[in-house]
Amino acid sequence: MKKRKLICIVCPRGCEIDVTMSDHGEITGIEGNSCKRGETYARAECTHPVRILTTTVRCEDGRLLPVRSSCGIPKERLFDCMEELRSVTAAAGAMIGDTVVRNILGTGADIVVSGNAGA
C-alpha cells in the first residue's frame, strides 16, 4: 500500500488530501477533500495530472492577447504547448471566447482568447 499527500489546487481553500493506493497503483481511498471536485482532482493527479495553461499570443497588430486552455493539459505537455504558441498569431480583431488553436498538439484542449489585447 502506498500513501500520497496532495494539496488540492481546485479552489483557494487548498485542502490537504491523503490518497491511498494499492501496490498496483489502484486508488483505494481519498480523504481530506471537502468537496467532490477535490476527489476528481486527486484521482487525476494520481493517474495523469493536468493543468490549465494560461499565457499570451501575439496579435497581427503586435499587441498581446491573453489566452487560456479550455481544459487541463497533461503537465508534461505544457512546455510543448508554450513552444507551439510562440509561432501562433491571432487575428487583430480576436474577441474574448474566440478559439485561437483547436485541440493543441492533440491534447484535446482548445486555446481560447480570455480578454482584450493589451496596450
Partner: peptide, 16 residues
C-alpha cells in the same frame, strides 16, 4: 486562472 469560484461558481482568468 483561479478567480471567480465564489462569485460565479466557475474558475475564470483575471481578464475573464
Amino acid at each position: 486562472n483561479g478567480f471567480g469560484l465564489h462569485r460565479f461558481g466557475e474558475e475564470l482568468t483575471g481578464p475573464e
